[in-house]
């Protein structure tokens, strides 16, 4: 059998394909707890929030033009997409260290492939929740699917950008990585996932909107509920500024410090 020298595009494709198959296999067979948790966590948060809501607020509609539970599910799913990308990408380089012995495999490949896997798995789980919600008679079908997909993709890209940057930063300055890990829960609270933005006092909203995640989440919800009143100042373009900047930063770090990322 005669091997030909492949172009770098072919090599890249082979590497991504091989790593993707590997990661997805590891995810599917490896940690059963992770699958359970992936399904159970949103349900637990939803149960908790629904009981809090009925206890504190009574049965009135908190969010205009959107049922509370679908509203919550969509927000949680969007946030988890971001968070999982951010957190799991940080460990991608370490987990695949042995593979960098093959010169075709770069640290950034492990990050890219893991992000693809995370995105696929999260999208799958989201579709599962949508289907389940619709079977239970909730209004979970997106009114403007293209907008919803675009917002979903944007959140994914943001998670990828942050994860890419952090995967390099975590290796170069481990303290910063730890800080990022600690930020995950507070981020959930200030991103408008659980608490609707209409509750936030008007003069504080401006500061809440510095955080790019709500821009993606609100747009995602708008894609699902066409008459959902999106908070003023929500702009997907702002999220994309963040995406582009974090991507540039992450790529620069990976290119510049490739050898240090490979090193043990």
């Amino acid at each position: 059998m005669n091997y030909k020298v492949r172009t770098s595009w072919q090599v890249t494709w082979s590497v991504w394909h091989a790593m993707f198959m590997r990661e997805i296999l590891a995810r599917a067979t490896g940690n059963r707890m992770a699958w359970f948790w992936m399904l159970f966590e949103p349900i637990a948060v939803i149960g908790l929030m629904v009981s809090i809501r009925t206890l504190v607020l009574g049965r009135e509609q908190v969010v205009l033009n959107a049922e509370f539970i679908p509203w919550l599910i969509i927000g949680l799913m969007g946030f988890f997409l971001f968070r999982d990308n951010m957190m799991r990408l940080m460990g991608a380089v370490d987990a695949n260290r042995g593979l960098f012995a093959y010169r075709q495999v770069k640290p950034i490949d492990s990050v890219i492939v893991r992000s693809l896997v995370e995105g696929s798995v999260r999208s799958f789980v989201f579709l599962l929740f949508i289907a389940a919600g619709m079977l239970l008679g909730m209004e979970m079908n997106p009114d403007t699917p293209l907008l919803a997909i675009w917002a979903w993709f944007s959140l994914w890209m943001f998670g990828f950008g942050i994860g890419l940057t952090l995967s390099a930063v975590n290796k170069l300055v481990p303290e910063l990585g730890n800080i990022a890990r600690l930020l995950s829960l507070p981020l959930l609270l200030v991103s408008g996932v659980i608490i609707p933005f209409s509750v936030v006092p008007y003069n504080l909203r401006e500061y809440f909107l510095w955080n790019p995640i709500p821009h993606g989440l609100e747009t995602l919800r708008e894609g699902f509920f066409s008459s959902y009143p999106v908070a003023d100042g929500v702009d997907l373009l702002y999220l994309w500024y963040w995406i582009l900047v974090t991507l540039v930063l992450g790529l620069i770090l990976h290119l510049r410090y490739e050898m240090r990322l490979k090193a043990k």
């Binding site: 770069k106 950034i108 582009l244 900047v245 991507l247 540039v248 290119l255």
Partner: peptide
């Protein structure tokens, strides 16, 4: 700004892909 960022990303992605050699 946006064009430069996108171009930078594309350029770097191409560089990274070029780095994948047999």
């Amino acid at each position: 700004i946006i064009t430069m960022l996108i171009a930078l990303i594309l350029q770097m992605v191409v560089m990274i892909i070029r780095d994948h050699q047999d």
